[in-house]
Write a protein that binds this DNA or RNA. Structure first.
Length: 199
DNA sequence: AACACGATGGACT
DNA sequence: GTCCATCGTGTTA
């Protein structure tokens, strides 16, 4: 199966986010099925890193769609985004949670000695996903084909929506926008209490 | 040069 | 629910 083409990402971030639920992402021996994402749109989204304009960190968001934007959060966690929209339109989809398809041993090993659990605790949260996939800022700007790639889903899941997590700094309208999407019924989802059926 | 703070996660009460 | 590790980034000077 070939990875998703650039044209898949050349649409509004919320639409891409919806189509990424159930898709698979692979890197460094681990393959995951995407269960939860958030859309960061532009313009007018005060939660988007691109709200301050183009900077060295967010530069990949301004480039062509179908690339990764990886950044260090809280000095500890590497968060993976999929850049969407046409070139010059800095929008992206944050990968927040996923379910293991392949490479469970590697996912556990990357959490360090002493990890004995095997369930959703391994991958419910964007920092956990970045660690499971062994990503760091050197992957920011990489095309989503090759070592790091995304593959189309085979079934269309039912989707839940809710407000995005951890964006208290954004304006109220953006804080409340239901731009966090997740696979209904999946246990591999963070903050499941703040999700509802889409209208 | 100095500063404030974050698209988090784990430990703990 | 609270606390805080840890450091790159953007802002201000």
């Amino acid at each position: 199966m070939p990875p998703l083409p650039s044209s898949f990402y050349d649409r509004d971030a919320l639409v891409v986010a919806r189509d990424l639920i159930g898709a698979e992402v692979a890197h460094a021996g681990v393959r995951l099925r995407i269960t939860e994402v958030e859309a960061y749109r532009y313009p007018g989204d005060t939660a988007n890193h691109a709200r301050v304009g183009r900077t060295p960190r967010n530069a990949p968001m301004w480039g062509p769609p179908g690339h990764a934007y990886v950044y260090l959060c809280y000095g500890l966690h590497h968060l993976l985004n999929f850049v969407t929209g046409p070139e010059g339109h800095p929008a992206a989809v944050l990968l927040r949670a996923a379910e293991v398809v392949e490479g469970l041993d590697l996912v556990i090993a990357r959490r360090g000695a002493g990890e004995t659990r095997v369930g959703p605790v391994l991958l419910t949260g964007p920092g956990k996903v970045g660690r499971a996939l062994a990503l760091d800022t050197s992957h920011s700007g990489a095309r989503l084909a090759g070592p790091l790639a995304v593959y189309a889903r085979e079934r269309t899941p039912t989707i839940l929506a809710g407000p995005r997590i951890g964006i208290d700094y954004a304006e109220p309208g953006d804080r409340e926008a239901p731009w966090r999407l997740a696979a209904a019924g999946s246990r591999w989802v963070s903050h499941p209490k703040r999700l509802w059926p889409e209208p």
